[in-house]
């Protein structure tokens, strides 16, 4: 029995979030299609934010570059699972064995995650030695390089034009399952030996080194896992919209995902989830305003751009008044029954 309780305690932060999101998804499955699409998108964002959290939250090193791996993931999957006919038109530069093959979507997604992970491993080896601002710039440089290369390598990416004809298989439940899957990965990592070592280095890099933590190695593992998760996010996004464009994976998505993580709090998985939920909700409300609505006979509509403006304002307010984010680095609190009690001597 005590083992069961300690197991429940250990798994509570993950299970509680997964169940909460399950309730949201069930409620969503009864909602109209438009709402379902919005929620699907939010779950896809959650995959990205959890991926970002896995590196940024555990290591305390800010990465401006994870959108690069969304891009490599999304395009990587597209190279594999776009119908052969479409490939002949848009992707003339694909080598024959890819150009004439059509992978099943799940295999394409796995390969794309592996490909992005490999890229992250290669660029990560030098980059994880950097800290603080140098790391922010270094990772941003990776994003800039990937963006420029993908924008101009017309034969493989169709350049700055959209790539269309991707199989659309992502619905609410696919997105939910992937979100929970990425949360399991992040939760497993943050409680693993390496994850705890990395969190120690986040608090004090010098002290962590002094007790024998191999900081670059721990960061590298987190960087690669993070890249694989955000790649999954990119794959889902591409196969949700059915089209792909390099602009989707540049500064806009970088800003939104960092904002979600910062608003929720970079220090905990619950922060990633709460931040994504809060910003997605606000995004949707402001989108409704942009579409316009009627009060009586007066049509009210606000110009586009308001959503980003709203996110920026919320982010600044949070940074000023609650710099550690909404969750302030904590997971969801344990329910009364699981809470440890003080042992009082009889």
């Amino acid at each position: 029995m005590p083992q069961a309780i300690s197991l429940a305690r250990a798994l509570w932060p993950l299970a509680s979030l997964a169940v909460l999101l399950l309730l949201v998804a069930i409620a969503g499955s009864f909602a109209p299609t438009v709402i379902q699409r919005v929620m699907t998108e939010a779950f896809i964002r959650l995959v990205m934010v959890v991926g970002l959290y896995l590196f940024v939250g555990n290591s305390g090193v800010l990465s401006f570059g994870q959108a690069a791996f969304m891009m490599t993931g999304a395009y990587g999957a597209a190279w594999l699972d776009i119908p052969v006919k479409t490939k002949k038109i848009f992707l003339k530069g694909l080598p024959g064995f890819l150009g004439n093959a059509e992978f099943p979507p799940w295999l394409a997604a796995l390969c794309a995650m592996g490909f992005s992970g490999l890229l992250a491993f290669i660029v990560g080896i030098p980059l994880v030695r950097l800290s603080g601002l140098a790391a922010a710039i270094g990772t941003f440089s990776v994003l800039a390089i990937v963006y420029v290369v993908y924008s101009n390598w017309d034969a493989l990416t169709n350049g700055t034009s959209s790539l269309i004809g991707l199989p659309i298989y992502v619905d609410l439940w696919t997105a939910y399952l992937c979100a929970v899957g990425s949360m399991i990965a992040a939760f497993w990592f943050q409680n693993s030996r390496l994850g705890l070592a990395l969190r120690a280095s986040r608090e004090d890099e010098v002290a962590a080194k002094a007790i024998g933590v191999n900081v670059p190695f721990a960061r590298l593992v987190a960087f690669v896992l993070s890249a694989m998760l955000v790649a999954l996010g990119g794959v889902l996004q591409a196969h949700f919209l059915g089209s792909l464009n390099v602009m989707q994976f540049y500064l806009g998505i970088t800003f939104i995902t960092i904002a979600m993580l910062v608003v929720g709090g970079t220090g905990s998985l619950a922060g990633a989830v709460v931040g994504t939920a809060a910003i997605s909700l606000m995004f949707e409300l402001l989108r409704q305003l942009e579409v316009g609505f009627a009060i009586g006979s007066v049509q009210i509509q606000v110009p586009p751009g308001l959503r980003e403006l709203g996110v920026a304002i919320i982010m600044i307010v949070i940074l000023i008044f609650r710099p550690a984010g909404l969750m302030a680095g904590r997971e969801l609190p344990l329910p009364g029954r699981l809470r440890p009690r003080l042992v009082t001597s009889g």
Binding site: L133, A136, L306, E308, A312
Partner: peptide, 28 residues
């Protein structure tokens, strides 16, 4: 000014947000 004493990364994120705010203000 309100975040002056935070660490450099927080300051960076704040300026990122200010940058987006001003940019989309002018889009608007």
């Amino acid at each position: 000014r309100p975040v002056r004493h935070a660490n450099p990364t927080t300051l960076l994120v704040t300026s990122f947000a200010v940058s987006f705010f001003l940019q989309f203000l002018f889009v608007l």
